[in-house]
Simulated assay, not measured.
Amino acid sequence: MAESRKGDPSLTSLRDQIDGIDDTIHDLLMRRIELARHIGQEKSQAQGTAFRPAREAQIMRRLAARHSGPFPFPVAIRIWREIIAASLSVEGRFVVSVYVPEPLEAGLAYLALARAYFGSGTPLLQAQTEAGVLRAVRDGKAAVGVLPIASDTHTARASAEPWWYTLTAGGSSRPRVVANLPWLTSADTGSDDARAMAVARIDAEASGDDISLIAFESTENISRDRIRKEAEFAGLLLDWAATWTDGEQSARWQLAQIEGFVAENDPRLANLVNSLGGELTRFVNLGCYARPGNGTAP
């Protein structure tokens, strides 16, 4: 029976069709990489950068909208992440610095996130502190830095101060938050699963569905609830992500996640500071990231 099926014309025809599809996919991949190489040459002349996470998120969402059939959508996304990473590699030098703390399990989790997002062929530069990641990006040794999700659980082992607080004093050339890792989450993703943020020295861009990160400096006298209510009145929907108080200063810094893309010169931020007088003294826009997908296609 097995011998007769080997000669089955229908099976031979199906296998030939699969071979043809494989060849077509391979041809299109080579064509895509060639186009990426030309884009890299154009950006090099204009002193631009190849990494555009907002554009990548738009690609992922477009794929989600058109995906159908039994092929697992998360697998499709993983394939495209590899394709995008390969394109970045031919557009110019692309290295990612990754925070790899102890214990080893935590460090490996951040490496796995970086590898899944930035591809199996992208060079990863390991740093044992958050400051080391920021330094690699600032000095040009890495195009992107992968750091832990901002929270109140900062430890001195990570760095003397939280990475997001460091960015508040970085000036116009500071790295900015540009992506959230992983891009695709699932219903099984728990609060203990590894997540990270990516920073890069590029301008933030709107993807169409974003979350912005704004750091506010305030006095100790004002509550989070009051700031939130005034923010809503100013047209900003926010949730608190982290707080940091430098022992040598009386001011308190609070990191907020705000719904939507908030530009550097968004007048709502200035209106919020003015509405609270001297209790909210200033703000720093730390960037934004595209809202992650939920692991399913429509």
Rank of each mutant, 00 (worst) to 15 (best):
E3Q: 14
R5Y: 10
R5P: 00
S10Q: 07
R15V: 09
D16T: 15
D16E: 14
I18R: 13
D19S: 09
I21R: 10
L28M: 10
L29R: 10
M30N: 15
R31I: 07
I33D: 11
I33M: 15
G40Q: 05
G40D: 05
Q41E: 13
E42L: 15
Q45S: 13
Q47M: 08
E56C: 04
Q58M: 15
Q58W: 02
I59H: 08
I59Q: 08
R62W: 09
A65S: 15
P70K: 09
V75D: 02
A85Q: 07
S89T: 05
S89A: 14
V90P: 00
V95I: 14
P101K: 07
E102H: 13
P103F: 05
L104I: 12
L104Q: 14
A106I: 04
A106S: 11
L108K: 13
Y110H: 15
A112E: 13
Y117E: 13
F118E: 04
L124I: 03
Q128V: 10
E130H: 02
E130W: 02
A131P: 05
L134F: 10
R135W: 06
R138N: 06
R138Y: 04
V144A: 08
L147Q: 12
P148A: 06
I149M: 12
S151F: 01
D152W: 09
T155P: 02
A156T: 12
A156R: 14
A158P: 07
A158R: 13
T166L: 10
L167K: 07
L167N: 08
A169I: 00
R176Q: 10
A179G: 02
N180S: 05
L181M: 08
P182F: 03
P182A: 02
W183E: 14
T185G: 05
D188S: 14
I202P: 02
A204W: 01
D210S: 11
L213A: 14
I214W: 01
A215P: 12
S223W: 06
R226I: 06
R228W: 00
A231R: 04
E232N: 14
A234Q: 08
L236C: 07
A241Y: 05
D246A: 12
G247N: 13
S250C: 00
E264K: 12
P267F: 03
A270V: 15
A270H: 06
L272Q: 05
F283H: 15
L286N: 03
A290I: 11
P292K: 10
N294S: 03
G295P: 00
T296G: 03
P298N: 02
